[in-house]
């Protein structure tokens, strides 16, 4: 159920613009202008709202998770990246985490062998995750050629690298194959491994199906059911220059691709995809392990009212004297 429902949801999301645009042309304004603007607004402001909410949450303790030698005596070598104490070391650690998923690299697989738990290295998830995220970033940046009229050299260079093998026409992009392979792996992993299937939710499957559908619709559009690409760029530029137009001759496949991306954007702030911003706000990663050098003040701490012995004695001095109790001040 948690696999089938997201799949059905994505199928419906594909069929909606497909039928809408082919049956009634008027819906092009809805799918080509209204939905994209709404999606960008929901994405940008939803994202900012979520980050501000996280920013308001106090971190009560200094809780970096470390896995290297802490800064200690001068003759003990500190592991600066795994156990940072300065801001620069934290930045280095975060960079490794964000760019190459260092903590996922330590992923282990646990198996029962002859009644004993056996731990082994498991790099496939790390590799597939890295391939997926990097190819997605590459594809995302590559799409900027639709949004600026004079395409910067850097984007053209990226495209040249991506289509380096010059296979077919239009040229085949490597990242298209990589993202399909990686997303398929991440999806199959959740279905195939019983432990992973057990902890997977509909919210895990939905983004995978959605991203897969986006990639497939894009690939179909580029290589198979081609659309009027110049008109697509006219529409894109019209949107971002706040002067929306609906040019003639854009195929329905384009509206499917666009609508799925809009759904992804709108879904983004409400979902696990927020790890894009959340990774920077993870206390276990972004704090320096310096609690033995600098005192960490819990922001929850409020000034505690204390009643000292001197005040107590002031309150009861006469009574204490009468009862024959010793007092410190006469």
């Amino acid at each position: 159920m948690k696999t089938v429902l997201p799949f059905i949801a994505v199928v419906i999301l594909v069929l909606l613009p497909l039928f809408g645009v082919t049956v009634a042309h008027q819906t092009q304004i809805f799918f080509g202008v209204v939905v994209p603007y709404t999606a960008v607004a929901v994405f940008v402001f939803g994202f900012i709202y979520r980050i501000l909410q996280w920013g308001k949450s106090p971190v009560p303790f200094c809780i970096p998770t470390t896995c290297g030698q802490q800064k200690s005596l001068p003759w003990i070598k500190q592991d600066k990246l795994e156990n940072p104490v300065t801001t620069m070391q934290v930045v280095g650690r975060m960079l490794l985490e964000v760019l190459v998923f260092r903590s996922l690299f330590r992923n282990m697989k646990t198996e029962m062998k002859e009644g004993k738990a056996v731990y082994g290295s498991e790099k496939l998830l790390w590799l597939a995750g890295l391939a997926f995220h990097w190819s997605f970033l590459f594809i995302f940046v590559r799409h900027y050629r639709f949004f600026v009229q004079d395409v910067p050299t850097a984007i053209q260079l990226m495209e040249g690298m991506d289509s380096f093998f010059q296979i077919g026409a239009p040229l085949f992009y490597m990242t298209d194959a990589v993202i399909l392979g990686a997303v398929t792996f991440l999806l199959v992993r959740r279905v195939y491994l019983p432990q992973i299937r057990y902890i997977s939710l509909a919210a895990d499957f939905f983004p995978l199906f959605l991203i897969l559908a986006i990639a497939i619709s894009g690939i179909l559009m580029r290589y198979f059911f081609k659309t009027h690409i110049v008109a697509v760029k006219q529409l894109a530029i019209g949107l971002v220059s706040l002067n929306p137009t609906i040019p003639e001759g854009i195929g329905a496949i384009f509206y499917v691709h666009l609508f799925l991306i809009c759904v992804l954007l709108m879904y983004f702030p409400f979902s696990k995809l927020m790890h894009m911003g959340g990774v920077f706000l993870s206390p276990t990663r972004n704090m320096a392990n310096d609690s033995r050098i600098v005192r960490y003040i819990n922001p929850w701490n409020y000034p505690v009212h204390v009643h000292t012995y001197e005040e107590y004695e002031d309150d009861f001095r006469e009574k204490m004297k009468k009862a024959g109790l010793p007092v410190e001040k006469e």
Partner: peptide, 14 residues
Amino acid sequence: ATLPFLLNLGKANA
């Protein structure tokens, strides 16, 4: 996130 909008401010579609 809004770079495409910022880059195209006030520019007409060719």
